[in-house]
Structure formats: structure tokens, C-alpha cells
Design a protein around this nucleic acid. Sequence first.
DNA 1: GTGAGCGCTTTCCTACAGGTAACTACGATG
DNA 2: CATCGTAGTTACCTGTAGGAAAGCGCTCAC
Lengths: 128, 128
Amino acid sequence: MEIMVHEIETIPTKQECDSSLNNVVDALYVLGGKWKLPLILSLVQSPKRFSEIQHELSGISPKILAKELKDLELNEFITRKVYAGTPATIVYEATPHSLTLKNVLRELSLWGKQHREMIKKSMKREAA
Amino acid sequence: MEIMVHEIETIPTKQECDSSLNNVVDALYVLGGKWKLPLILSLVQSPKRFSEIQHELSGISPKILAKELKDLELNEFITRKVYAGTPATIVYEATPHSLTLKNVLRELSLWGKQHREMIKKSMKREAA
DNA sequence: GTGAGCGCTTTCCTACAGGTAACTACGATG
DNA sequence: CATCGTAGTTACCTGTAGGAAAGCGCTCAC
């Protein structure tokens, strides 16, 4: 039943582009900035405390970290859990929603790699 | 032979994340900014002249448009073609490389839409 | 009670993206 | 000759992201 193995390469219509552009812009907005993706990926690996994150993402300032964590919490990528005790320990962990980024990140990674290699090749060609 | 219909939901390893993060950051870098994607999508629809683009993307200033066009040309998303004549007409058109964004944009659009709807729902829940 | 660690907040600063307005060079057109 | 359209460039300004350094309230260990 393999009627269509290869996708026909059609140029998308204006409507298709316009409707999806808003979604894409929204997506890039919530993922944008220097630290959001590194943070999400770090917390997907394992829940961590504020100071642990600061240590792992060396270079992030406490101000930015606090801001980004609030932002990611608002967008439900992470949750802030307070474990009672003395002193209380505060742990940030990724929600299941963070895992929905899997396909997006896979495509972005594949494309980014391919793009970089293409540009490298064409720069060599120009140098020759 | 459908041994595995559903992908097993595994949390990606540190290595997988680190190696792909650079690719993703690169990808977001070349697509970043306010006008790159609108410009690419516009030129994928049809080649256009400078003034036509200015008109279609109302709000873009000639300075930014010129800068973005140079940028997109460097990254081989578009080409600048000069057609002789008097006066010469200059046309920008998307390259085949622009079309390699298809999968990335589809995933980003799907995810962006899903994310927006999720946030909307959870905001309603909180309001209730 | 003094110092250290945690989880931040506050203040100040810089760099860069992007916008506005004016200007240029060129040929065509009236 | 003056004006118009095209394809930009230039100079100036603003807003925001992000970094540096210091401080704050709390608790524990010494």
C-alpha cells in the first residue's frame, strides 16, 4: 500500500503560512532567551535546587535565574516544590509538559545541524 | 510487524540533551528576531522586490529590511537577483534551502498551538 | 553571637535589536 | 529642469535582555 513514499514538495500556500506563523512566533517566544532551554533540559534530567542550578548552568546570575524560573513556572514547564523541614528545601522539577517539547527539539536539532553543515560547506567553496 | 506502535516515553539522557542543545541554539539564532520568519515565508510564496516586501510586511523599516535581507542571503535562505534593464529590477527569492524549514515549522506550529491552548485552559481553571 | 549557606531581591550598568526620519544615487518622466 | 520611484544608507534614539555586585531574611554550626 505504499502509494506515496515521498512527500510531494509543494510550496505552502499563503493561508497555511499565515495561520501557522502566529503559532510559531508564540512557540519561539516562550522558548526564547538565553537560558530557557538549558534550564528546561537541566531540570528534565533531574529536579534541582536553586543553588544546584546556579552551579550547573555556570554563568547564570541569581537575578536571571529567579526570573527565568518564574517564567517557566507560569508556562508550566516546571513546578516549584517546597519540602517542609528545617530549613525547608525548595526544589524545581520539570512537568510532563516539558516532555512535549521532544519533537520540536528533535526537529530543531536536526535542522540546526544540517544548516550549520551546509553553511560550512558553502563557505569552503567560496574560499577556494 | 507492528512491534512498537507507541514510542516509549523516555527521559532523554544528559548527553543527548547537551549535544542537541547546541544545534537547537544555532537554529534559533538564525531564525531569531522579529522579521526573519515573516520574510522567509513571504518570499517562499513568491519572489518580490524591496518595495513590495516593505508593503507586504507593513511596519518594517527600510533599514531593518535591508539588514535582514543581507542576513538571510548570508544564510542562503534567499538570493538577490538583479535583472538587467533600465532601470534594473532587483528581486529577492527564496532558495530551496528555505523549504528545508518545513518540518521545523510544522512542529513548532503544532507545539505552539497546543501550548497556547494548554495555558488558556489552565488560566480558566485558576480563575474558577 | 558570629559566620556561612540558602534563596532569593535590589540597584546599577551595558549592549544590542529595532524604530524614525532624513538623506543619497540613479534613471525615468512630465 | 524639477519631480518621482526604486533601493537602499546614515544618524540618532529607545526599550529590553541580561550581567555585576551587594544586600536581606532565615537557619544552622561553631
